[in-house]
Amino acid sequence: MLKIENLHVRVEDKPILKGISLHIKPGEVHAIMGPNGSGKSTLSHVLAGRDGYEVTAGTVIYKGKNLLDMPPEERAREGVFLAFQYPVEIPGVSNVYLLKAALNAVRKHRGLPELDAFDFLQMIKAKTKLVEMDEKFLYRAVNEGFSGGEKKRNEILQMAVLEPSLCILDETDSGLDIDALKIVSDGVNSLRSADRSFILVTHYQRLLDYIKPDQVHVLAQGRIVKTGDASLALELEERGYGWIDQTMGEAA
């Protein structure tokens, strides 16, 4: 699904990622953990194609294609989806309108006809149930006046509608109470499938109580310093990120 090799990324003149390598197979869930400033969010933004990041070395191959060559809209149409840490409010554009525009762009790219209004509405309504969202949210402006939890649920709704192959969740758990976390996690879990992979970027272990990862990577100072199974997250939770710094200190 995704092969990241030796990825180096700079923001302005500051190196942020210093040689990331990561292989994700279809159906796998990878968690990327790390302290603030370790480069977690940079990694998700670079994969989604946000401006302002300069790749100075390395490659990212997604489904056999060079992901870094694609503009962000093409990445989205090819099945890459970023759930934002801070979803953007778009006053004046209704949720349902954005969903329709996005879905049609993606379907067109895949050679599929546009859904007619009836089928679209049926589909959307089914997906809102998945994230336990009231249908009235469909007609409200995108994220405008939504609570933190509602915004994150809205991200998962978009994900469910666009049916991507690679889902990147950037600190989706931040700012969520337990109930919202559970709803979001249930939504994600229901989307898990053999041909869909996930990257969960998170600071805390608690999201991983609800979404079981296949692998956990610890990112520090722009490098993956440790990789393990789900138990690594628990160990981190117990010992804190200081433990990683120590390990790195020993290695250095």
Partner: peptide
Amino acid sequence: AESIFYLVSRGVDRET
């Protein structure tokens, strides 16, 4: 710019 990127990241082209 962040609003444009948000829409583009959903598959909508930049001009649209």
